[in-house]
Design a protein around this nucleic acid. Structure first.
Length: 493
RNA sequence: GCGAGUAUAGUCUAGCCUGGUAGGACGCGGGCUUCCCAAGCCUGAAAGUCGGGUUCAAAUCCCGGUACUCGCACCA
């Protein structure tokens, strides 16, 4: 499916749509509709369940507004701040530091717009493409700044990532939780980036949802259970050779010198996507970044990539980042509070392994890879536990007696599960509508259900989304049946 | 942010060149029919991105804004 078709389906069926659409929309900002909101919530709940499975891993919920200081300490206030110069004639914008460095002129990292403009004037720098004069340099910060209080004197920012919120809570949580490492702190929440040019649907957004797990650990003592995933084959593209290959975590460790804890978590993430979400293995890979494309604070950096047709190939939907002690060291300095802790008889600043995911990208990805279309019909093959509704209760026909029975089953189940019902159109049309939003089962009330003479009295048919097959089940067994469908296999046997 | 293109019901589209009653399909609502996969019949609601100009008259011609798509650039 291409990007336009996916977006059209999303709007038509209530997955998501541009925010403020009746005013023309606003690029990079989206609202989830009644179907998308359910899928997103279920994805998030599943994510929390899985990523806080290990002992001493917990979930936090943090503010989206941060004061200026922590973002100065983390480097965002300066590094998120690009100085751009534009060419007046051809309209191209350049990052000033990159442009000048390319011309062999050294620019200090903290250079401000005045310094840049001075250099450009003195050295008579012109547009490298058309040789015209360049416009005044402008600071462009990816962060949205806000001003607090009635006088708007206190500067803050909408956070550009959720990670910082966790680092700011580390010390307190560590102490409350009996000072044990490793400590995992996860969160899901909004982050904001003023992208110049948001594109490709939910891929690059100005307001986005991140799901992040930050694991704080002592690299000298952390032992992971390599046995758990030892036979798993994982698609990787290692920086060292640049070729995609399928290897075990032991090969990753021995051949590429990847630390055990890191390789283990590659498998941990792989298991989530392949076995729980259901991404086919050939569509999932881990792409190691190095050189210029690796963020400076990362010691090891892999992108979690999924082959998404509507995005034109493998695209990043998450990342596994070994950030060393960069973050807590920065916040120790910035806050002037010693964030070091005692581990194994020594004072250390804990290291951080970050598992980071873009929730919106994941929702788009789910729609893309689980969308099935053939001549006959369209259906969204989501796992039952992330489907918006687990089932729909449908009367076979527009018939008062059938509708009454269907309604009573619907009322029985909807207090326990997300259940839909629909009485308009023919039964085939209703199955089709449910297929398109990914409802895995339809519970159909027919004349046998209400016929006391029939052997099938008080039974219903269950119609399966994926193969259209039907089984008959007593109404009293519906709850048990549904519960069994809702359980993911959280870890390998 | 620059350049090019595009903008008609929920969706896809006809009409625009050559100004004069906005038409169709799918979808949606109501009704009939129908004992399991978007069937059929009747019926209904629903549209020219916004602002200005030219004109007796603008979806149509002109100018401007906005949004989207693509390219450039950006993406710690």
């Amino acid at each position: 499916m291409n990007s336009e078709d996916l977006f059209a389906l999303a709007k038509k069926r209530g997955f998501f749509a541009p925010a403020a659409e009746i005013y023309g929309g606003i690029s990079g900002i989206y609202d989830y509709g009644h179907i998308g909101a359910l899928i997103k919530r279920k994805f998030e709940n599943l994510w929390i369940l899985y990523f806080t499975l290990p002992n001493n891993f917990h979930f936090l919920d943090c503010s989206t507004i941060l004061p200026e200081k922590p973002l100065v300490a983390s480097g965002h206030a300066s590094l998120f701040n690009d100085i751009l110069v534009g060419c007046q004639k051809c309209g191209i914008y350049y990052r000033a530091d990159v442009l000048l460095n390319d011309l062999g002129i050294k620019v200090s990292e903290g250079a401000n717009t005045e310094e840049i403009n001075k250099i450009i004037r003195e050295k008579k720098i012109k547009c490298p493409k058309c040789k015209s004069y360049l416009s005044e340099a402008k600071a462009f910060n990816m962060m949205f700044d806000i001003y607090l209080g009635p006088e708007h004197l206190e500067k803050g920012y909408l956070r550009p990532e959720t990670a910082q919120s966790i680092y700011l809570n580390f010390y307190r949580e560590f102490n409350i939780l009996r000072k044990k490492l490793p400590l995992g702190l996860a969160t899901i929440g909004k982050a904001y980036r003023n992208e110049i040019s948001p594109r490709q649907g939910l891929y690059r957004m100005r307001e986005l949802v991140q799901a992040e797990l930050q694991i704080f650990f002592d690299p000298e003592t952390w032992k992971v259970n390599l046995e758990l995933f030892k036979d798993m084959l994982i698609n990787v593209v290692m920086y060292e050779n640049g070729e995609q290959e399928r290897i075990t975590i032991n090969e990753m460790i021995n051949k590429y010198n990847i630390p055990e804890f890191y390789a283990y978590h590659v498998a941990f993430v792989d298991y989530f996507y392949e076995n729980i979400i259901g991404v086919p293995s050939e569509k999932l890979r881990f792409f190691e970044k190095g050189g210029d494309s690796k963020a400076f604070y990362n010691k090891i950096h892999m992108d979690v990539e999924v082959d998404v047709e509507s995005w034109g190939g493998f695209k990043e939907i998450g990342g596994i980042h070994y950030r060393g002690d960069y973050d807590l060291t920065a916040h120790s300095k910035g806050s002037k509070q010693d964030l070091s802790i005692e581990s194994n008889g020594k004072k250390i600043i804990p290291n951080v392994l970050e598992l980071s995911f873009g929730v919106d990208r994941n929702i788009w990805m789910l729609m893309d890879i689980f969308f099935n279309k053939n001549d006959e019909r369209t259906f969204l093959k989501l796992k039952p536990y992330i489907a918006p509704y687990i089932a729909a209760v449908l009367p076979l026909q527009n018939d008062e007696a059938l509708e009454k029975k269907a309604s009573s089953i619907y009322n029985l189940l909807k207090v326990k599960f997300n259940i839909e019902t629909d009485t308009s159109g023919s039964i085939g049309r209703r199955y089709a509508r449910m297929d398109e939003i990914g409802v895995p089962f339809c519970i159909t009330v027919d004349y046998e259900t209400i016929n006391k003479e029939s052997n099938n009295y008080d039974t219903v048919t269950i119609r399966f989304r994926d193969d259209k097959k039907q089984i008959r089940l007593p109404i009293i067994e519906l709850e048990k049946f549904i519960l069994a469908q809702l359980e993911p296999n959280l870890l390998p046997k």
